[in-house]
Design a protein around this nucleic acid. Structure first.
Lengths: 154, 154
DNA sequence: TGGAATACCTACCAATCTACTAGGGATTAT
DNA sequence: ATAATCCCTAGTAGATTGGTAGGTATTCCA
């Protein structure tokens, strides 16, 4: 069970933008260099993030990308979904498909497991924000509603 | 983010064996027919399950496969691991590799998320047994230590 | 003793996905 | 005008997926 590097790269790019949040647009080439990834590939990865409204792009000489909202209000779930589509581990446990399309699940059911797994994954992804990952925040505590507003300290 | 059908097929095959647990060996062709999958493909999927010691095979005319232990003591985690190898979402968050090999994770860290995600997944997989999935057990409660011994009711 | 039924093994295959590279076009500050 | 930037499409080598095909080994049973 593996995660494609799209998500890894995408998340790292978003973390880079979170780290420099407030300092104006950052060029694609700079993000790629800072994170050690292929510029051309990152370009294809950041495109869906822009289409999903998670980053804003400005063209031209001093252009680049900025986060569309504060790091504390961008969740990992938004990023992963933008990059990999809806989280469906398996046909019958898709995030958005109606569960009506599933036969064979009368007695013994594998589906029960995939649903539990999916919910567990979504719980982590949707409760973790960029702000949770970026500053030296205490590990193990993420998305505390009482701490909204904590940004990157740089 | 998807799960390969290896895991789905493997789990379904194991659930089929759990359902008929106690009735002697079940032939590969019967498992495949009962679950509607390709016989040849299932053969390749059940092989690692046998090598991992999760099922026992007997050859010859009345041969087939049986679970190596009771459904209540076989976890989904054992099955998935046998089929997909150790759970490493990403290089730096592998289940068994030492975390020493990870650079770049000084300030902002995506790794923190993958570790949390991995732990969350492992928690679900390792706490769900075939017995939890097979009978009409109440959903949402799995691997209760006080209910060890509950088998398939057929 | 000789099928027949089963597990077991290896190789092959088409389609898809992954992680890129290449090359060009559109937009904007200077 | 020019250079820097975003934006788009197409190609591509290698891996993975989801199988199929065909043979070998073992065991029950008549």
């Amino acid at each position: 069970m593996k995660l494609s590097s799209r998500s890894e790269y995408g998340l790292r790019a978003m973390l880079e933008l979170a780290r420099t949040y407030g300092s104006g647009p950052m060029a694609l080439a700079d993000i790629a260099r800072a994170q050690g990834m292929s510029e051309g590939y990152l370009e294809q990865i950041i495109a869906p993030l822009r289409r999903a409204g998670l980053v804003l792009a400005t063209r031209g000489v001093k252009g680049g990308y900025v986060l569309a909202s504060a790091p504390s209000s961008v969740t990992a779930g938004q990023i992963i979904r933008a990059l990999e589509g809806p989280l469906d581990l398996i046909e019958c446990a898709s995030e958005d498909s109606a569960e009506a399309s599933c036969r064979r699940e009368l007695g013994c059911g594998s589906r029960r497991l995939w649903i539990k797994l999916r919910d567990s994954i979504l719980d982590v992804l949707d409760s973790t924000t960029l702000a949770d990952l970026c500053p030296a925040a205490p590990i193990g505590e993420t998305a505390k509603p009482s701490r909204v507003g904590a940004l990157a300290s740089e």
